[in-house]
Nucleic acid binder design. Structure first.
Lengths: 222, 222, 222, 222
DNA sequence: CATGAATGAGTGTTCATTCAT
DNA sequence: GATGAATGAACACTCATTCAT
């Protein structure tokens, strides 16, 4: 799975029994070519410095062709973000399903997150930089992407179930705790990305630190 | 204090006994006018969408005038970031100095951070959006701003002293823990900023949650 | 010949038997449109006062289109100069080849020069005015244009062959004499251009004067 | 003489017996300061790249001060050209007056020209580059400067007197011959300026070449 | 459908000139 | 008179988007 995750799975999965015509298949492939190119170029240059021509060139299509698949630069960017979240979410779901206890689920969740960002470090840089034209409009646009909401919700469910299993405190709302977990994760990832010397070679090795901190905090055990 | 923090305090503080000439004072005031305008416009539109004309207009100066005080758009932006960090750092130093124990220092640190971001929510949006032209070049430019480094160092010292006073675990490097504290704070601020309904009216009220989570983690006390 | 000299002949001549594709032909035609417009505008206003918008407008293209054919204003200007020199040189070569004696060659050379400048008086004004941004850099750029060097060399060869045929004195280096010939020509042209009343209607009529002066000098024959 | 030639001699010489008031003298000195600075800056950067601020700075005055002495950039430039011509003309008049024969006068004329340009090579570069904004307007402006007309006339008179003394042929109008003499001179100077290696160390040494060429031409004596 | 040349509004920046002090 | 900060029009160049082929 995820082999060709860039191909909008919605189209494929919605009608699982239906064989796609060559026309449709080609269309999806081209769309995925462009997304791949956009990922590369955005990661390299950031949203504003990346030009549609750059992306078209990288995808080996003509400029106009890109506009057949994406309404405008913004839509292309948003599709890309959505794509990445979708990939991540699908992995998280699949892997956490294998766990039996809340703690295992948390472990897997953290490990898979770190591993995902490690694998996608280039495109991940995108998330840390300029989002979009009018941030006021667009940041909310980003956060309202259905998939992004789904992702937050997934983490919340995870926390909730952990609270149910008495692993996590329930004196604060799951939402708040979920956001904190996400932020600890992001912090680790961000600092790892920033550290160009990559003194911590392996991001995944941080799993234990994250889990420990999340559960026990930085306070000294007395 | 910090009433007119936008005026380069360096100039003022270097010669504390000396009254600035009217010329000098005017110059600083104009500079601060422009910084204030830039803060407003950048916060509203983000770096790329903000134009120098927007900023000049907001400051009620002509376009060219802005260039008398800042070499280019980049320098203006960087000055602004530096300014904000400087303000924050100066508050943090002043307030934490009043504390007697590590725990008090941490409490104050967290409270003052949240309060600062609450007061400066508009400009804080800037930090969450596009940084600069070529992210690869410029983000590093940002992170290497002396004041930014000082800020990180300040937090690290805070953690170290907390480790010394047996408040914080010392089985992880202070740097790692410091970054985590910063990121928990940022996470709370970010989610508060994002929540347009401001269900949590008062950001400062989150102080206790942050301190609790940071010290004790999300794990259920058994 | 030279009917459409503004079209880069290099491209055409390199593959004399090959019909250019419509695409290529169009491209060359557009390029030549722009050069023609640039010639007009530069001649009228000089390098600095001519704006790219002026030129685009004159060529009936959009501003950006000009940049598809020329990297920047500088490149456009240099291409124009090169073009004019190329035209002149090609005429000179073709015509002087018909001569049998050194004197005939000189006569033809002078006549064709004057006639060329007469036909191109507008664009020739360009040469007499500002060259380029930083003269120190750019004038040398101009003088190092391959075609300009070729032109000087052509005149030098002419003088050398005249020395060989005992028409021209050989007690001075050909180079010095060549530069003098060029400058006498330029002087005549310049003064003719300057004379707005055009009392000397026909520049070509000056041929005899130039040849006489060049060979015999202004001294009274005794 | 020429010690302070940059001071508008008109003012001083027009009323030779009158002592200038300190006020007037200061004014003239400031004007000359600015002209000197302008000469330096224009020579270095050319008309367009030189800014009024550059010139003011070089002259150690404020920007606005320059405008008290010269209406605008154009007027400053024109004054400078006028100044230089005036200096040259005054030298030429003074020196040629010492000659007894037409040939001597010619010799002196040529020698003093070359020597003048050698001494003023930096400012002379100005003449060879961009003249002025709208060349159509300004080149004629330049050529209609009273002093420039006087200079041309001076050379014409020189040629006329040479014709009268049977040194120079009279089958062509003096004006034409005068222009040719000027152009031979300019050619030598220009090529010398261009030759950065300065293989011909001493421009004045070219006097004989110029006189020889002018009188006898490049034709081989038979 | 795919192309890529053409478009032209929009940007950062400069600099001659003015004018309040 | 002298100053130099302020002005704002102007310019080269870019790039998202369109559309004729």
């Amino acid at each position: 799975m995820n082999v060709n995750s860039l191909v909008e799975e919605r189209f494929i999965k919605d009608k699982p029994g239906v064989l796609l015509s060559r026309r449709q298949r080609d269309k999806l492939l081209r769309r995925s070519d462009i997304l791949r190119a956009a990922e590369h170029v955005f990661a390299l240059k950031g949203y504003y410095e990346a030009t549609m021509q750059d992306i078209a060139k990288e995808a080996q299509y003509a400029t106009g062709t890109v506009y057949l698949y994406f309404k405008d630069k913004d839509a292309l960017y948003l599709s890309l973000v959505e794509q990445k979240y979708k990939d991540l979410l699908s992995i998280l779901k699949e892997e956490t399903a294998k766990a039996h206890t809340a703690k295992e689920r948390l472990e897997i969740f953290i490990r898979e997150n770190l591993s995902f960002f490690e694998r996608n470090q280039n495109s991940f840089r995108i998330f840390f930089t300029e989002r979009n034209k009018r941030q006021t409009i667009k940041v909310s646009k980003l956060h309202n992407l259905p998939i992004v909401l789904q992702h937050r919700e997934f983490v919340m469910d995870l926390i909730k179930s952990s609270q149910d299993e008495d692993l996590v405190r329930d004196d604060f709302p799951a939402k708040q705790i979920a956001d904190m977990l996400i932020s600890i994760l992001m912090s680790v990832v961000f600092n790892w990305l920033r550290d160009e010397t990559k003194s911590t070679k392996n991001l995944s090795r941080m799993s234990d630190f994250v889990l420990d901190m999340f559960l026990n905090g930085a306070g000294k055990n007395k």
